[in-house]
Simulated assay, not measured.
Amino acid sequence: MEKLRRNERIGALMNVLTNRPNHIFTYNYFTDKFNAAKSTISEDIVILKRLVNKLNLGHIETISGAAGGVKFVPQMSQNQIKEFLMETCEYLSSTDRIIPGGFIYMTDILYYPDIVNNIGRIFASYFVNKDIDYVVTVETKGIPIALTTANVLNVPLVIVRRNAKVTEGPTVSINYVTGSTKQIHTMSLSRKAIKEGSNVLIIDDFMKAGGTAKGIKDMMKEFNVNVSGIGVFISTEHPNDKLVKDYISLLTLKGVDEEKEKVYIEPSKGING
Rank of each mutant, 00 (worst) to 15 (best):
G101R: 11
V155T: 11
V128H: 14
S94T: 14
E139N: 04
S188A: 15
S190N: 04
P170L: 02
P100I: 09
L189D: 01
Q183T: 11
N129Q: 13
G102K: 10
T149I: 09
D114V: 10
K165F: 08
V116E: 05
P156E: 06
T107P: 00
I174K: 05
L110S: 04
T178A: 05
M106Q: 09
K130A: 14
Y112T: 15
I143H: 04
R191A: 03
K130W: 02
L110M: 14
P144V: 02
T95G: 00
Y105V: 02
I174G: 07
N129T: 14
S173G: 11
R97S: 09
N151S: 13
S125C: 09
I122K: 07
N175W: 03
G179I: 03
Y105I: 00
P113E: 12
Y111Q: 14
K182F: 07
T181I: 03
L153E: 00
I109V: 15
P113K: 11
T140S: 15
L157R: 07
I122G: 07
S125K: 11
P113D: 14
I132P: 06
N175P: 03
G102C: 12
N163I: 06
N118W: 00
V136L: 06
I119G: 02
T149N: 09
T107I: 10
N151C: 05
K182Y: 07
I184V: 15
I122C: 10
T137Y: 01
H185W: 06
V138Q: 09
I143A: 05
I122D: 05
V155D: 08
V155L: 11
N118V: 08
K130Y: 13
Y126N: 13
A146C: 12
I119E: 01
T181Q: 10
I99E: 09
A124N: 08
I98G: 06
I104E: 01
I99N: 08
I99L: 15
V155E: 11
Y134L: 07
I99H: 08
R191P: 01
I104T: 03
D131M: 10
T137F: 00
S180I: 02
G101L: 13
Y111P: 00
S190P: 00
G169Y: 07
T171C: 14
I159N: 01
P113N: 12
D114W: 06
G101T: 08
T186Y: 02
D131I: 04
G142I: 03
N129E: 14
A164G: 02
I122M: 12
T95F: 04
I174D: 07
R191D: 10
R191Q: 15
A164Y: 01
